[in-house]
Simulated assay, not measured.
Amino acid sequence: MTWLKLVPGWAYWLAALLIVAGAQQVRVVSAQAQTSAAVTELAKHRAEVAEIANRAMVAALNETKRRMLARDEVQSDAEQQLEVARADADAAGSAIERLQQRAEAAERRSRSAGNTITDQLSQATEAEARVHADLLSRIGQAAGLYADEADRRGIAGAACERQYDSLGN
């Protein structure tokens, strides 16, 4: 052990310091490698999350587009059905008008018969015919209003059902 006494004391301290510094350097390099791996893994995770979010956004946009197209289609169908119903109501209204015209023509023919008996009967039937024509006109108007409202509500209800059903698919 005599050769150990030849080495000064500060050299031991220097050797211990170098050993500790080397060990710390190894720990720093190891920590840097772990940090680099963690940063890489975090970047991969963020990319995956961004990709999932992007796919979810595209899916949501596609679903919204599908729903809007289905709604537009249902609305277009309802408008077409409403136009058909209005055309039917107009046809029914013109049929009522033709019936009223026929009643008025019959009334004029009976007045123009010229016979006194028929003239007296004509006056009595004329009043009755006017009441019938007026009643027929009012019934036709009321029926047209009710039919129009019933058609409108029926078509709107069916369109609502179809639109609701399209949301579930």
Rank of each mutant, 00 (worst) to 15 (best):
Q24T: 07
E149V: 05
A143M: 07
E107C: 03
Q101R: 15
V20P: 07
Q34M: 08
E83S: 02
R67A: 10
S166E: 14
T2K: 15
E161W: 14
R98E: 11
A21E: 03
V49Y: 04
T125K: 03
A31R: 04
V131K: 11
A103N: 12
D165K: 14
A103G: 10
S36Q: 12
S112P: 00
N169L: 08
A127G: 09
E79G: 00
A129F: 04
R46P: 00
Q120L: 12
H45I: 04
A21M: 08
E63P: 02
D77R: 13
L167P: 04
A159S: 12
D72M: 11
R67S: 15
A142W: 15
T40A: 11
G168L: 10
A85G: 04
K65M: 10
L82N: 00
A92V: 03
Q81H: 06
V131D: 02
G140V: 01
L18S: 10
E104I: 15
A89F: 01
A129L: 14
R102D: 15
S76W: 01
A59L: 13
M68H: 14
A91R: 14
N115P: 06
A50C: 03
M68R: 13
L136K: 02
Q34H: 08
N169M: 05
Q32L: 07
Y12D: 13
A78P: 00
E63Y: 10
Q24Y: 09
A113K: 06
M1I: 04
I96L: 11
Q80L: 07
A15F: 12
N54S: 10
A143Y: 08
L145G: 02
E83V: 06
D88Q: 11
L61I: 04
T64Q: 15
A37S: 12
Q120P: 00
D72Q: 06
A11E: 06
V26I: 14
A53Q: 12
W10H: 15
Q101L: 15
G93E: 10
E63F: 03
